[in-house]
C-alpha cells in the first residue's frame, strides 16, 4: 500500500515540476514581450505584440494555477510566479533572452512558436485532462503567433539589405538556444511514459521543416547548429533572468504577503 502511495506522490512531484516549467516559459516570455508595449515599429504591431503577450500570460496563469493544485500546498498562481528564487525558475533559456531589436524579438518568437505549435497540438491528447484542456486553447493561440511571426520573418529577410543583415545576426545570436527545446530530461521522460507529456525530441524534424520553409521564402538560412546551450530546466540561467525577476518580483518582495 505505502509503495503505491509513494509512486503517486513521486509522479505528482514530477507532474508539478513539468507543469511549472511550462508555466515559467510562458511567464518569462510574456514579461519580455510586455516590454515592447508602446515601443513597436508601428502602432498596429504594438497591438499585435501585446496580443501575443496577453495570450502567454493567460497560458502562464492557467499553468501556475494547475501546478499549485497538483502540488497541494496551497500556493496560488502569484505565489508560484513571484515568490521563488532565481535558481528555482525552470524556463528555457531562449525565453529570457533580451528583446534586442525587432529582428531579435521576431526570431525568438518565431523559433518558440514553431516549437510550441506542434507541442500544444500533441498535448491536446494528453491523458491529463487539465493539460489537454489548456493545450486546446493554447494551440489555437500559438498557431496565430506562428503565422504572424512567419510573415515578419519573410518581410524582414526579404526586405532591405539592412533588415536582412539584422535577421542574419538575430538568427546567429539565438540559434544556440534552440537545442534545449528538444531535450528530454527525467521529468519529461516520466511524463511521456505516463501518457501525460509530449516527446519534445520528436518535434525537432517538424520544427526544422517549418523554420526552414519560412526562412527559405525569406531568403535566409538557418545557421549551422554549433554547441547548444542548456541549463534552464535545472535553473542554470543566463545573466538576464535575474534582472527580469528583479522587476517582476519587485512589489511582492517589497511588500511581502499583501493583497493587490
Amino acid at each position: 500500500m505505502s509503495g503505491t502511495c509513494e509512486t503517486i506522490m513521486a509522479s505528482n512531484q514530477t507532474l508539478f515540476s513539468y507543469v511549472l516549467r511550462l508555466a515559467d516559459d510562458h511567464l518569462i516570455l510574456s514579461q519580455r514581450l510586455g516590454e515592447w508595449c508602446g515601443e513597436a515599429p508601428t502602432l498596429e504591431e504594438d497591438l499585435a505584440l501585446a496580443n501575443i503577450a496577453l495570450d502567454l500570460i493567460g497560458q502562464a496563469r492557467a499553468l501556475y494555477a494547475y501546478a499549485g493544485q497538483v502540488e497541494g500546498k496551497g500556493r496560488n498562481e502569484d505565489q508560484l510566479a513571484f515568490m521563488r528564487y532565481e535558481r528555482d525558475y525552470q524556463n528555457l533559456l531562449i525565453t529570457e533572452q533580451p528583446n534586442g531589436d525587432f529582428a531579435h524579438t521576431i526570431v525568438r518568437q518565431f523559433f518558440i512558436s514553431a516549437y510550441m505549435d506542434p507541442f500544444w497540438r500533441r498535448m491536446e491528447s494528453s491523458k491529463d485532462e487539465m493539460l489537454a484542456a489548456i493545450a486546446a486553447k493554447a494551440s489555437k493561440e500559438v498557431t496565430y503567433h506562428l503565422r504572424h511571426t512567419s510573415e515578419w520573418v519573410i518581410r524582414l529577410g526579404d526586405g532591405t539589405r539592412e533588415s536582412h543583415e539584422r535577421m542574419v545576426e538575430a538568427l546567429d545570436d539565438l540559434m544556440m538556444f534552440t537545442g534545449e527545446l528538444f531535450e528530454m530530461d527525467a521529468v519529461a521522460q516520466e511524463m511521456l511514459q505516463s501518457g501525460v507529456g509530449v516527446d519534445a525530441s520528436d518535434l525537432k524534424a517538424e520544427w526544422q521543416h517549418t523554420v526552414q520553409t519560412i526562412l527559405q521564402e525569406a531568403t535566409l538560412e538557418l545557421p549551422k547548429a554549433g554547441h547548444m546551450q542548456t541549463g534552464g530546466r535545472t535553473g542554470r540561467h543566463s545573466e538576464h533572468l535575474g534582472h527580469i525577476l528583479s522587476e517582476l518580483q519587485y512589489m511582492q518582495r517589497s511588500f511581502p504577503g499583501l493583497t493587490w
Binding site: E44, E45, L47, A48, N51, R147, H148, E151, R155
Partner: peptide, 9 residues
C-alpha cells in the same frame, strides 16, 4: 499584414 492588423486591432 492588413488582415493581421485588422484582426489585432
Amino acid at each position: 499584414m492588413a488582415l493581421h492588423a485588422a484582426r489585432d486591432v
